[in-house]
Write a protein that binds this DNA or RNA. Structure first.
Lengths: 122, 122
DNA sequence: CGGAATCCGAGCAGATACTG
DNA sequence: CAGTATCTGCTCGGATTCCG
């Protein structure tokens, strides 16, 4: 099914909801951290700098609910919980990387526009 | 932990800032509306359903500052202000469309995961 | 018509403390 | 270690009003 065929799809809401996930400050950082392999809770907390454990908990729960990551509990003392990217999560990370590439390419350009805009509106 | 210490960490802030723009509820809708051609303020307000004029004003200002859209004033009575997508804005819209395609393709999949997750955690 | 300025309520994010 | 619970502040976004 090609989205480009119809100008305004019925699932615009669903799409923009997913876009807002992508734009979320923590979601992407967690996904990126998991691209390299499985991580545990506090490992992620360390790797994703500046995140509170509550935000990490919430982010992980949302991602798990959406099927982007898998949560595996190894019953032991101390308890170990591993998070891994599902195929769907990997798929997302690839798509996001394209957007990130675009952002990296055009970052300087955008920055220049801002400086000029700010200068004109001083 | 210093973000810049990580590989590719130099533009992480800039990139994630752009990602947050993409995830913004209104930004994308405005860009999409402008893909079809120039629009005026109240035209956009009508086309992007549910947006307040303050949010539209803010969104347009940010997009103009970033060089995504161009603002052209036709001095007349009543005043006419036209907004158009710049090449950079078009470029962004193309990249976002790829993400939107991904979202459309996987929306059902995600929805299924959610239903199952909610059922398990009932 | 195309905005700018102000006020205000809701929701999200952080810090902290506690639990299995 | 891996969370949960609570409280709080603070930003976002909407409605309203006013200006050129």
């Amino acid at each position: 099914m090609d989205v480009t065929a119809r100008p305004e799809g019925a699932d615009c809401r669903g799409v923009s909801e997913i876009l807002s996930r992508v734009g979320d400050k923590w979601t992407i950082q967690v996904v990126v951290a998991l691209r390299l392999g499985a991580r545990r809770f506090n490992g992620l907390k360390r790797e994703v700098g500046g995140i509170s454990q509550q935000m990490l908990t919430r982010t992980l729960k949302v991602l798990e609910r959406d099927g982007m990551i898998a949560r595996t509990v190894h019953p032991s003392t101390p308890p170990q919980v591993e998070y891994t990217l599902t195929p769907l999560g990997h798929s997302l990370s690839e798509t996001v990387r394209q957007l990130a590439d675009w952002a990296a390419e055009n970052r300087q350009n955008i920055e220049d526009h801002r400086l000029r805009y700010d200068a004109d509106h001083a």
